[in-house]
Design a protein around this nucleic acid. Structure first.
Lengths: 209, 209, 209, 209
DNA sequence: CATGAATGAGCCTTCATTCAT
DNA sequence: TATGAATGAAGGCTCATTCAT
């Protein structure tokens, strides 16, 4: 039937695109992204060069698609987790739990190669990463809400706005993740996240004299 | 005389090498390192392409040499600065002054392009950077000495070793620098260094109740 | 019924071919013909790429068909116009009116892109244009009849045959049109046609002393 | 000696450039210019692709160089010829002699293929031909001076400026040359030049009644 | 030592055409 | 008839490296 034919073709076409995309991702993980050529991607995928340009406007577009996928995935993971935290947990605990969760997502869901790749792309001049930087929004707002709650409940006392503190936190998270990438596997991401945030908490926790 | 002739040749050859190297450095500061071609280097140096390959085995070798030099230079700057700090300054002040100095060196002596390059290389798969990571040694020991002094004089009170705290600090410095690289020029490196270290100090400063 | 089915199919198939052809024509008018891809044609026509190759052996075949159609159209326009001119108009006037009409047809009916294309094809090495050159026939005979009438009525006095003069005129028309193509849009085709033919008329008009 | 070495190398290098340039020209004559690839040029020249880009910035640059060369050559020929005409020759005769000379230069010095190529390039959208159009300057000014002299000496009587008439003449020359290109070899360029200019002269020659 | 002409593999991208469905 | 996924040769261009001189 026509319907079957169409869906069969569509399926095959989807498979081809997926093959190309997957091959690209694997190559990105192994080699510097700038060094991965369209040639090598299609060779690995076992398709023609022309096929590549059916599914992607350009090599850059594939990279963009890839970044957006990563971002969406991380955002989803972060936000879904926050909602699962018990409301009556202290803000300090929430903060620690949240960064622990981030570490888990990064280590197990994203993986080392992928994160390193993302950090590389961030630094590259060539690829636009506005989307990537905007992935912070969720992480920012999440941190922000935790901090605000802590302030309201008298648990935290800051000499800066909650927003500024959130930015600071993201920078630290990113810094530790960067360190993880360059010291892998001799660096425990989660442990370092926790240690550093505990240190931070010492500084901001309200100690009524 | 033979001797004179040899030393004369040697001098000329050294000059040629230096010219190439200097030109390469200037280009690296201005453009993405991957985009700097051997052609552009020798053109700027005013020497032949063949000359390049007399003094450097490959473009990669020149880059490695260059990176090592950068690292040495930074190390030297850091340690020489520390010795210039008045002995009776408080450790907190010293810490702040020190990170301020690092920011100055990075911004004005190294420059944005070079720092980004260093960070890219750290993350790259094909350049070995074990030597690079060891550039931390000086910065670690410098921080360590400041912290230790602070502890001895009762100014700091840590829940971790001074060494651990130094590591932590370097991670933060690197994290902020990374952020600077990806947000350049919309990010003030020095200001952020100071802000974040003041926050840290709040947490570690000894507050006798 | 069989018959109906067949004629229905035929109609649909004709429509598809027409759609492709029309889309191609529109694109040819807008863009350099070499830059119009089969892809863009079928996309505009809303049919599949396969359909294109059902109705046309190749892209070149479509172009040939298209050119022949253009030529036929121009011929038709020219000759139909001549018949509409009042019989008692002077030959000089007829000549001027006729070249004005040609300018109008070229500018508004054919268009710049198409004329340039025709002139390019004329000069191209790989497209045979014997048929194209014969498009002159109508224009020649039309001019010829005007000139002959002028001679008969004592209005013109030539030192060459009417036929030769017609050839000359066509060369001039083509020359001016060529100039229009290479100076477009800074060249007024009609104005130049008129000016140049007025100049010609000065030379051939019979001035009894 | 160093000097010899240098001149030997330079000579070889010049030869290579010439080989590339000559091969390109030959291919341009045989095939539509757009269809001539860098690959085919270097293959014919027997050099590597890289060599091409040592001597020419791009394929377009080679074409431009080629055009300029043609233009210079023609300009030189035209202007040198004009100076050789006896001063006391009548303007009509000068005009005829001049267009005869142009025909000779085109037929024997430039050649059919080259002229056709130039006319093709003129029509192409891709290649900038401002230089080509400006090649008219010499031809314009030459014609202009002849016409002006004719007017001053009462030989010509125009209803337009000398400049306008020169423009007109160039258009006609170009038109006839175009016709020659598309009808080659069944068209006598020189004969047609003469015939058409004689016709023109009939129109502008002063006939005191 | 120094030169710089020459190499050639590699890059990204386009597009007319085919063919299984 | 009609589809559209797939092909693969070709295009212009770059650049690290070599080698005869």
């Amino acid at each position: 039937m026509g319907k079957n034919e169409i869906s069969c073709r569509k399926r095959k076409s989807d498979e081809t695109k997926e093959k190309i995309y997957t091959s690209a991702k694997e190559l990105f993980k192994k080699h510097d992204i700038e060094k991965v050529s369209v040639d090598s991607i299609v060779k690995k995928a076992g398709v023609s060069k022309g096929a590549f340009y059916i599914y992607f406007d350009s090599k850059d577009e594939l990279i963009s698609t890839f970044i957006e996928e990563c971002v969406e995935k991380m955002d989803l993971d972060y936000s879904s987790y926050l909602q699962s935290l018990p409301y009556d947990m202290s803000s300090s605990q929430k903060l620690i739990k949240f960064v622990e969760k981030i570490a888990d997502i990064i280590c197990h869901s994203m993986g080392y190669e992928m994160m390193k790749l993302l950090y590389q792309i961030h630094l590259s001049n060539h690829v636009k990463t506005d989307a990537l930087i905007s992935y912070n929004r969720i992480i920012y707002s999440t941190l922000n809400s935790i901090i605000l709650q802590g302030i309201e409940q008298g648990e935290f006392k800051l000499e800066m706005t909650a927003e500024e503190f959130s930015k600071h936190s993201v920078i630290i998270l990113r810094g530790i993740t960067y360190e993880w990438c360059i010291r892998y596997p001799d660096f425990d991401l989660k442990e370092n996240y926790i240690r550093h945030f505990k240190l931070l908490l010492t500084g901001i926790t309200n100690k009524p004299s």
